[in-house]
Design a protein around this nucleic acid. Sequence first.
DNA 1: GCCAACGTTGGC
DNA 2: GCCAACGTTGGC
Length: 164
Amino acid sequence: MRFWLLKSEPDVFGYADLARAGREPWNGVRNYQARNFLRQMTAGDLCLFYHSGTRPPGVAGVAQVVRAAYPDNLQFDPASSYADPRATPEAPRWSMVDVAPLLALPRLITLDELRTLPAWAASPLLARGSRLSVLPVDRAQVQSVLQAAGTTLPALDEPAAPAL
DNA sequence: GCCAACGTTGGC
DNA sequence: GCCAACGTTGGC
């Protein structure tokens, strides 16, 4: 299992919207680095759901990848602002995954608070001018956020897949 | 292949 | 609303 952070503007689509929807294609990512991370995701990976463009920004919940990367539908939709005329169904350029809600944090863990957590010291999220909307995190970072929020995820504390 | 111009992101 | 940082575009 790997761990990721997904940014979204809550005015557009926040964690509460995901909780309501039950499942959602994470489409519209139009940055190659972010796209390449999407392509590394597999079902079962956990994603911190980060609210950006709001005050304060921070992690609002945890989502789970429920479908690995497949072609982003919006790239083929001329009516979409995410349309990409260079993309064809035979040669798609952009990918999306499907995510589902897993846990709403009891309280937002703000960007300011992330800056105080040792596990986050080296995260690109905290780097000046960071704009990446999909980025890898690690188990310790996820755990530190859950701990700060006063909650846990049983799946996190289990050892990696037990050998049979 | 360089680089200036431009558009976008995102914290403040 | 401002502005710094960054990625992309397109002329050359």
